[in-house]
Design a protein around this nucleic acid. Structure first.
Length: 602
DNA sequence: CTAGGGTTAG
């Protein structure tokens, strides 16, 4: 009987402090849940100390995840490591939380890897949740070496059959190193494939510019009967954008509708971008209009699309509409806007926007924006002003800017100046092929053939070759690719004959071959003959043969369209009564009845 | 507590 009260006492004395601690813990956790700013987080930090919770794993983990939402993860982890001194308090869960926060923050991925190392040095074993974060961090900063070491640990610890880990592994290998081979190897050896792994691999191909391989892999995926999901669709739309494969893109859109693939903003944006870059910018615009939750990327994609099609005024009014809608422009959207002004000759407006960037929005222009301005002036023929601009700009001009200037010099007859700049550029960048091509093109325009030949010999001696021009065309669900002088096509003789016939036909309409851009292309052929073997002419001839009269022709070129092909295409559109849409390295040219939408302003 | 994705000068 006597024992009872003391037992109760004992019971209470043991549990009261614990439950008080629990209450404090709960209180702290709910305060953290409500925390939405850094000052509040700092207040909570002292609160945590007051309550003596600085060693409480639950509180610290919550603290970490909240600070990662507030982009204060560096701060949080330094706090944790300064308070949480006893290594035996650390657990894998806490590490995972911090590593995840670092892995998803663009400039802090390196810290995720440091923490992984620290974790190992404390003797804490990673679990299967740790590895996706660590591999993601490796992928983000291109750490192939470390990725391989991590791969080794994954195998050693027996996580090499976990699909989450393996899919991220594919992603890591596809994002680091020199290509997709390692990624493909992991992918091929994967025991259980799901759509995530397929998307990682398809996306890897797209990132390395191997879009045809990406499409090919998608066909295999269908054979393997793995249902593609939203992300797969986004990757494939990217591939279409790259290839200019409008028909395939339309097929994907139909698939998305048919299979009720959920349409997130990212998928919408991918669709908009695909339609814009594959030539159907009106479809892109109508998709954009029917979207409910547009974000900055949607606006930028559609503005960019308008710019590429030379519809600068519309791009500008979209930009104004965006601002009215309360969407704050970012640096990327300004690139689209300035390109629009540049490609449509809106010089004064472009200048205005360029200055408003800093004044109104506090965005400091990057080299790309300066590049847009140089291009804007150059296209308008204000070469001298462009040169002044370059000399006054606060960033060191890069080769891209010099090449813009050089091209303008050539186009506007400032040949001496162009020669001077190109020689300077070659001194700084002696291994870049296109600089030599530019110089030889300038000499060709000056009619100094000896110098042209000399440049060509230099290039041969240095083992350089001009990037071969190639043109793609999508006909009846097949993608055909032509390169200059291509004889790989089974019907090449008929195609060559067709090109010659076209040449005769348009000559009668007034076309005169301009031979000044031909010199570095092909060895054996005479100049005009070589021009007639340019890949876009082959592709157009092929299309004229294969499609019924009156159908529009759509082609995609890997380089800038040359002066001669541009002029020839104008004549072809008139003589053969075809609308011809050419996607260039830079923009679209829509040829209708002898006129190009670029107004010869390219 | 876990994986893959959209816009970027010429």
């Amino acid at each position: 009987m006597n024992h009872l009260p003391s037992k109760t006492k004992l019971f209470c004395s043991l549990h009261k402090p614990i439950s008080r601690k629990r209450a404090a813990e709960q209180n702290c956790l709910s305060l953290l849940q409500l925390c939405n700013s850094l000052p509040k987080l700092l207040q909570l930090q002292s609160h945590i100390f007051k309550l003596g919770l600085q060693n409480n794993p639950l509180v610290l983990t919550k603290f970490t995840s909240i600070s990662s939402d507030l982009n204060a993860i560096t701060y949080a982890s330094s706090f944790i490591f300064s308070t949480y001194v006893e290594p035996h308090f650390f657990d894998v869960f806490l590490f995972n939380t911090i590593i995840r926060s670092y892995a998803v923050t663009s400039d802090l991925k390196h810290n995720a890897l440091c923490l992984y190392g620290k974790m190992l040095s404390y003797g804490i074993w990673p679990n299967k949740f740790t590895y996706p974060f660590v591999l993601k961090a490796c992928a983000g900063i291109g750490e192939l070496k470390l990725g391989q070491i991590v791969h080794g640990s994954v195998v050693k610890l027996g996580f090499h059959d976990d699909s989450h880990v393996l899919n991220t592994m594919v992603h890591m290998y596809c994002s680091c190193g020199g290509g997709v081979e390692y990624g493909r190897k992991v992918f091929d050896e994967m025991p259980n494939w799901n759509s995530v792994g397929w998307s990682a691999m398809i996306g890897g191909y797209v990132r390395w510019g191997l879009s045809s391989e990406a499409v090919e892999l998608f066909r295999e995926m269908q054979v393997a009967r793995v249902a593609p999901d939203e992300v797969t669709m986004v990757c494939l739309l990217s591939a279409c954008t790259d290839l200019g494969a409008l028909e395939l893109g339309k097929w994907l859109e139909a698939y998305i509708e048919r299979e009720n693939v959920p349409k997130s903003a990212v998928l919408w944006n991918a669709l908009i971008d695909m339609f814009a870059k594959c030539g159907d910018v009106d479809k892109a615009l109508s998709l954009f209009r029917s979207m409910s939750q547009r974000n900055i990327v949607s606006w930028t994609s559609v503005i960019d699309g308008m710019a590429m099609h030379g519809r600068g005024a519309e791009a500008v009014s979209l930009f104004e509409e965006m601002k009215k809608d309360g969407v704050v422009p970012d640096d990327v959207s300004f690139i689209g806007l300035l390109t629009a002004c540049s490609h449509s000759g809106l010089v004064e407006q472009g200048k205005g926007y360029f200055y408003s960037m800093t004044k109104e929005f506090g965005i400091s222009p990057k080299i790309e924006h300066y590049g847009c301005m140089v291009d804007l002036l150059c296209r308008a023929g204000l070469v001298q002003e462009a040169l002044d601009f370059v000399q006054r700009m606060p960033i060191k001009p890069n080769p891209v800017i010099w090449r813009t200037l050089i091209t303008a010099c050539r186009a506007h007859g400032e040949l001496k100046l162009g020669e001077k700049i190109t020689k300077e550029l070659i001194k700084h960048e002696p291994t870049h092929d296109s600089n030599y091509v530019l110089l030889s093109n300038i000499y060709a325009k000056m009619f100094s053939w000896e110098k042209t030949t000399m440049i060509r010999e230099v290039m041969v001696k240095k083992g350089m070759r001009k990037v071969p021009g190639s043109t793609m065309i999508e006909l009846y669900n097949e993608i055909y690719e032509f390169v200059a002088g291509d004889k790989s096509h089974s019907d090449y003789k008929i195609i060559f004959q067709m090109v010659d016939d076209i040449g005769k036909e348009i000559s009668r309409a007034g076309y005169i071959a301009s031979t000044s851009e031909v010199l570095l292309d092909i060895d054996e052929e005479d100049k005009e003959g070589a021009l007639n073997r340019h890949s876009e002419k082959l592709a157009i001839a092929f299309a004229l043969m294969k499609t019924p009269p009156g159908t529009p022709i759509r082609i995609v070129k890997n380089l800038r369209v040359c002066e001669d092909c541009h002029s020839a295409t104008k004549f072809i559109s008139k003589t053969y009564k075809r609308e011809i849409l050419v996607r260039d390295r830079n923009r679209f040219h829509r040829f209708i009845d002898g006129v190009c939408s670029c107004k010869d302003f390219w």
